[in-house]
Amino acid sequence: MLPLEGIKIISLEQAVAAPFASRQLADLGARVIKIERPETGDFARNYDQTVKGMSSHFVWINRSKESLTLNMKADSGKSIFKDLLKDADVVLQNLAPGAMNRLGFSNEELHKINDKLIICNISGYGSNGSYVNKKAYDLLIQCEAGFLSITGTEETPSKAGISVADIAAGMYAYSGILSSIIKRARTGKGEVLDISMLEALGEWMGFPMYYSLYGDKEPKRTGSHHATIYPYGPFQTAGEETIFFAIQNEREWVNFCENILHNPDLAVDSRYCNNSKRVENKESLQREIEDVLNTKSLHEVMNELEENKIANAQLKNIKQFANHTQLRERKRWIDVETPVGRIKSLLPPAANSKEDIKVSPIPEIGEHTNQILTELGMDQDTIKQLKDSQVI
């Protein structure tokens, strides 16, 4: 039995944040009913067509769900939504700011329908404050949270290559819902979770925030080098190949100087004798390091670092990551069915095998509409009328 078997989640979701949260709940066995717009569905379905004609975003975060198309502005659509909520455990949504209230489904109204409901609202800036109605997308939250100010090169602020604000919000929605399910088992009552993308990413900004608030300057943008630890980042080896490695303490620094650079005097050089000095003089230290590493191949440097227990990595592209030896040896890949055939997917990090999660297909738009409405007691004539009137 999976942990969330018997839990029913109704999700008015789109894009990344809420779908990422609900997919993880589905992985644990929850029944997730994904409500989509009739005909067009979740707009993330059309971000690209790279996965056998499907969107890479959509296939990532929408397996193991049931798709119900529903016009939430129609009275009959609202009635169906209410019926779904009567025996639901969780309602999750990341619609535009204020959309649920405009539809007549405020938190108070939802709890009148079912006082055991766990209500999880994901928004850019939260349910109150002067930014409450401000539209928010991932890159814009990265800006507002200060993320871009510390990411990139000195000349050019850069966004993260993935949707970090959406993912952060989805992770806190997921963990918050799990906590609320445990709490409800004790109290018998539902509650409201107000997840802000700004605050979710803000939690991840803890180190630079404290560094700036209590230090005398903000962390600099240093490209792929660490802003406050050195050496920690990329260095050139022979053949212009790049090795990444990290020195985390003074013991490792001495070891590195003695056994990699073969220059023990460098460890006690007044310019480099502690981390703060090394950061201050990193340009000259980089030359010292690369003068030695440029005489060795990438393979040689990696072997020497491994032998001396110094953390290191090779810069891999996405296909190299997908073919990573460690993922293959640990059997981390599973197959997932889609409307266009089988695709590969990574196991969730906490799952030891496919048997630890629910794996069912990625749904087509409205694939489960007929089944779900039949469960609610509707006959086929009624369902046809709803379809003809574009409610479903």
Rank of each mutant, 00 (worst) to 15 (best):
P3N: 07
I7M: 08
I10E: 02
S11R: 01
R23V: 07
R23I: 00
L28C: 07
E39H: 14
A44R: 01
R45W: 10
V51W: 00
F58T: 06
I61C: 06
K65N: 02
E66Q: 15
T69I: 04
N71Q: 10
N71V: 04
F81C: 11
A88W: 00
Q93F: 13
N94R: 09
R102T: 12
L110R: 01
I113E: 04
N114W: 02
D115V: 00
K116A: 08
S123P: 00
S123M: 06
V132H: 11
D138I: 03
L139H: 06
Q142W: 00
Q142R: 07
S149H: 14
E155C: 03
K159W: 13
D166F: 09
G176I: 07
S179Y: 05
S179T: 11
S180C: 13
G188I: 05
K189Q: 14
L198F: 15
L201Y: 04
Y214A: 05
D216T: 14
K220M: 12
G223C: 11
G223K: 13
H226G: 02
H226W: 03
H226I: 02
H226F: 05
Y232W: 07
F235G: 06
A238N: 10
E241K: 15
E258H: 11
N259G: 08
I260H: 03
L261G: 12
L261P: 01
D269F: 03
S270R: 13
S284I: 09
L293V: 07
N303M: 13
E307Y: 07
Q314N: 06
K319N: 15
L327G: 05
R330Q: 12
K331D: 11
P339R: 08
V340L: 08
L347I: 09
P349T: 15
A350V: 08
V359L: 05
S360Q: 10
H368Q: 14
N370M: 07
I372N: 02
L373R: 01
E375A: 06
L376C: 04
D379P: 01
I392Y: 01
